Amino acid sequence: MHQSVKIKWMVSMTSGSLKYPGAAIFPNHSSGGLHQGVNMPVLFTRIGIPHPGQQTEALKFAKARKEAVNKLYSLNAEVYVRFGGPVGQIVMVESFESLAEVEKMKIAAIRDSIDNKIPMAPPGVFQTVEEHAWMTV
Rank of each mutant, 00 (worst) to 15 (best):
K19Y: 10
V129H: 07
A24D: 13
P123M: 09
H132V: 12
S17M: 07
Y20G: 05
R65L: 15
E97M: 00
N28K: 09
R65C: 15
A108N: 07
L72F: 03
S15C: 02
S17N: 06
T128I: 05
F61C: 04
K106W: 07
L59F: 11
E57W: 03
R82K: 13
F83G: 12
E130I: 05
A133V: 12
M120T: 15
K8Y: 05
G33N: 06
K63W: 08
H51M: 14
S31D: 11
E67T: 08
T128G: 02
G84S: 04
P86C: 08
A64C: 04
L18W: 01
W9P: 01
L18K: 03
I25E: 08
A121P: 13
K63D: 11
I107M: 10
I25T: 08
A100S: 10
M1Y: 05
L59K: 13
P27G: 08
H51N: 15
A62G: 03
T45G: 06
M135R: 05
V38R: 10
S74V: 02
M120N: 15
L34Y: 06
H29Y: 15
A133S: 14
F44T: 00
A77E: 01
V38T: 10
K117F: 04
E78N: 08
H132C: 09
A24K: 11
V79G: 13
N76F: 02
I49Y: 11
P122K: 15
P50Q: 14
K8N: 07
V93D: 00
F44C: 02
A77R: 01
Q36P: 09
V102Q: 00
R82T: 14
K117V: 00
H132K: 05
L59N: 13
H35P: 15
T56V: 12
T56P: 02
Q3Y: 07
I49A: 12
V11H: 06
L18P: 02
F26D: 12
P41S: 12
G124H: 05
A62C: 03
S113L: 03
V79E: 10
R46M: 15
V38Q: 09
V125G: 06
A100K: 02
M13Q: 00
M105A: 14
R65H: 15
W9L: 11
N76E: 03
V42P: 00
R46E: 15
G88C: 03
A58Q: 11
H35Y: 10
Q36L: 14
V102P: 02
K71V: 00
A121R: 06
L75Y: 01
P41Q: 09
E101N: 06
K6L: 10
S12E: 06
P27Y: 04
G53S: 11
M10P: 03
F61D: 11
H2A: 10
A77M: 08
Y80G: 14
K19E: 12
A62M: 08
I114R: 05
I114S: 08
A64Q: 03
M135L: 14
S95I: 02
L99H: 03
I90Q: 04
E103L: 04
S31V: 08
N70V: 03
Q54R: 14
S74R: 05
L59A: 14
M13W: 00
D112L: 03
V102W: 02
G33M: 05
E130H: 07
T45V: 01
P41T: 09
E101D: 12
K19L: 11
F83C: 07
V129K: 02
V125M: 07
M1V: 04
T14M: 09
E130S: 14
M120S: 15
P21L: 10
Q89S: 10
